[in-house]
């Protein structure tokens, strides 16, 4: 176990140490004390390592990470897990806006609520939010899955591509080209797997969720869609 106290060391020291870890093989876990909302904690990490953050973090925690498994014991600021490529980011509190933005892989698990633009432009990441999500979530989401236990704000999935969104609660409104879709067995199985990864399998009924996806009406420019462009 490597312990970093951010009251005595800097974020630069921490990231430099994390970047020195080998690309292959497991590394000894890191514990980060007194994060105090600092920005850019544990960004660009490309190593098989457990990172436990003991408190709230600022912007972009876990940004552009590969392999790492990060636990944040508190709230997360804007852009947590942005462009993450693999591994896990587990936020035990709430997340600010743009959580998981452009994420390409791995799992972003948020125990609380996520603010606006959750999963914006996601490109393969899985996002599970146990609370609610804010407006414009899933905007231009390309691939990947997002699961929301609570409610979704306005314009869910606006200009959505091929990402699949599962929402249990009410949705304030759907964005352009986003529609509710049939839940087939493959989707129920997929959702069950995501719930399993989130530690909620058997405690939440997949039958309570609605699947949302792209109507694919805006995939090609057409004169009659001018109002939607």
């Amino acid at each position: 176990m490597t312990t970093f106290d951010l009251e005595t060391k800097t974020v630069r020291d921490l990231n430099a140490a994390l970047h020195r870890l080998p690309l292959t093989g497991s590394a000894a876990p890191f514990q980060i004390l007194n994060p105090n909302g600092e920005h850019s904690i544990a960004v660009g990490v490309d190593a098989d390592v457990e990172i436990a953050i003991d408190g709230p973090v600022g912007y972009f925690c876990g940004g552009m990470c590969r392999q790492a498994r990060i636990t944040i014991d508190g709230n997360a600021g804007q852009g947590v897990g942005e462009n993450m490529e693999s591994g896990l980011i587990h936020v035990k509190g709430d997340a600010s806006q743009s959580a998981g933005a452009t994420g390409r892989g791995g799992l972003l698990l948020i125990e609380g609520n996520a603010s606006a633009r959750c999963g914006i432009s996601m490109k393969g990441v899985d996002i599970v939010v146990k609370g609610d999500i804010g407006h414009l979530s899933g905007f231009m989401a390309q691939t990947g899955r997002m699961v929301v236990f609570g409610e979704a704000g306005e314009s869910l999935g606006d200009s959505l591509y091929e990402a699949r969104l599962y929402v249990r609660g009410p949705v304030a409104s759907l964005g352009a080209d986003c529609i509710a879709k049939e839940m087939r067995d493959t989707h129920r199985a997929e959702l069950y797997d995501l719930l399993t990864a989130a530690g909620e399998a058997g405690r939440v009924d997949v039958g309570e969720f609605t699947r949302y996806g792209s109507a694919r009406q805006l995939y090609t420019f057409h004169v009659d869609n001018a109002g939607a462009y």
Binding site: V11, R12, N15, A16, S40, V43, G44, F60, M64
Partner: peptide, 8 residues
């Protein structure tokens, strides 16, 4: 700042 941290 994040991009600087990512690229040391």
């Amino acid at each position: 700042l994040e991009l600087r941290e990512i690229t040391d």
